[in-house]
Write a protein that binds this DNA or RNA. Structure first.
Length: 379
RNA sequence: GGGUAGGUAGUCAAGUGGCCAACGACAACAGACUGUAAAUCUGUCCUCUUACGAGUUCGAAGGUUCGAAUCCUUCCCUGCCCA
């Protein structure tokens, strides 16, 4: 049982894109990688079997806030951790609840000690401190666990973003101190990733990257992006952060994004992504395909009996027709949610595998440029 | 044949003299969604117009009234009960 390893296996002459291999006690992850989001211990509407066989996911996420509220730590501990509980035996990454500081802004209060949340389930109040969040993630048992941060909204005043960043840094110190003074619970190694903040301000991002890099963590994350800022700003900040984070450690861009966002950020040096878009938007009728974006709800697909996307190595994408999926989604049939989610995730995983192939082939940049044009199209 | 309840926009269904192009629900059509309080939310939904607005509606035809989906008359149709 060993700490997470990262080996760079390929680079690109005309961009910062690279390929790599992450090794954890639950297996390997080839990068660049997309990680499906399984907030409450499940990727919504998708079974673990489908994640393996159709989506071909090598790692999924779980969420501290949601799992802490339900089923709760007692159940998770008695189960022997989330892997044993949900049957996913590949790597798991848990988000710290930092994003909920942002998304649950109406029901929480930020203090130096931590954040007091009001549960969205029953209204009960809970304090999330860096120490507590480390303890919870120890109990959930993610292979990669995230530091507790504040994700400031967009737009934020410079002064607020600066204060928020420093708070995140102080919390980061406490996360590491507590993490290092506690032990792995289930016989495999857990790994803590710090998170860069600083909103859209280059000097703050630079300072945050320096602070985060100083932790010499096994991997580093970029947070606080894709919260409403213009796309170009996402790319610029992402690039600046990648340039300032260690080369030999995996870089994880949190919460991003569209297929073209992912390709653009791979080009800038990101190795890991997660996003709810393929699942949430899939449930809401938006399909990402190798020809562009489809709103499967639209009448134009009513009699289109062609496969959802025959180019994707996924039985769901190849077997079910657009017309049938439209019917299922319009009829609110559960199967529709599953097909749309499985297809979208399979497409995302297909996309990062393709990116990897082109990085290794050395033609990533031109491939990426042509792909982005195609993928953005509204069909 | 007698009695009775009713006929409102794609459907169901409010409204019972002016605040009605007509509540609401559903369907339909379109949009949003980026570390998931989201199988959710928003908009349109008689016709024409981007909009302002204009024009036709509430089974049909007449009538009362300054004014009718709402009141009166006749007719047509539907449900239920009795023969």
């Amino acid at each position: 049982m060993a700490a997470l390893q990262f080996e760079l296996t390929g680079g690109c002459p005309d961009s910062a894109a690279r390929t790599g291999r992450i090794t954890t006690d639950h297996g390997e992850i080839l990068t660049p990688i997309f990680m499906p989001v399984g907030t409450a211990g499940s990727v919504k509407a998708v079974s673990q079997q489908q994640l393996k066989e159709e989506v071909k996911a090598s790692i999924i996420l779980g969420n501290t806030y949601h799992l802490y509220l339900r089923p709760g730590l007692e159940v998770l501990e008695e189960a022997g951790g989330l892997h044993r509980f949900n049957g996913w035996d590949r790597p798991i990454l848990t988000d710290s609840g930092g994003y909920q500081v942002f998304s649950l802004s109406g029901t929480r209060k930020i203090q130096e000690e931590g954040v007091v949340f009001q549960s969205h389930i029953d209204g009960s109040r809970h304090l999330f401190s860096p120490e507590k969040v480390m303890d919870i993630q120890r109990t959930i048992g993610g292979d990669i666990i995230m530091a507790f941060d504040e994700c400031p909204p967009y737009p934020s005043e410079y002064g607020y973003a600066e204060k928020s960043m420093h708070l995140t840094h102080r919390w980061l110190d406490r996360c590491f101190t507590h993490f290092e003074s506690t032990a792995d619970k289930y016989g495999y190694t857990q790994n803590l990733f710090p998170i860069v903040q600083g909103s859209v301000f280059p000097d703050l991002r630079k300072a945050s990257c320096a602070y985060v890099s100083g932790k010499n963590a096994v991997g580093n994350a970029i947070g606080g992006l894709s919260v409403g800022e213009p796309e170009q700003q996402l790319y610029d900040i992402c690039q600046a952060c990648c340039e300032d984070l260690p080369v030999h450690r995996p870089r994880y861009l949190m919460g991003v994004g569209t297929p073209w966002n992912i390709l653009e950020c791979i080009a800038r040096g990101v190795d890991m992504f997660d996003c709810v878009m393929p699942t949430r938007n899939g449930r809401n009728a938006m399909l990402f395909t190798s020809r562009g974006v489809i709103n499967i709800d639209n009448k134009r697909w009513e009699k289109d009996f062609s496969p959802i996307d025959e180019g994707i190595d996924c039985a769901f994408s190849q077997f079910y027709s657009k017309a049938y999926l439209r019917h299922l989604i319009k009829s609110k049939e559960f199967l529709g949610l599953t097909i749309a989610s499985v297809h979208n995730l399979a497409f995302y995983l297909h996309l990062v595998r393709e990116a990897r192939t082109h990085i290794l082939q050395g033609d990533f940049l031109s491939w990426k440029n042509s792909q982005c044009e195609i993928l953005k199209q509204r069909l």
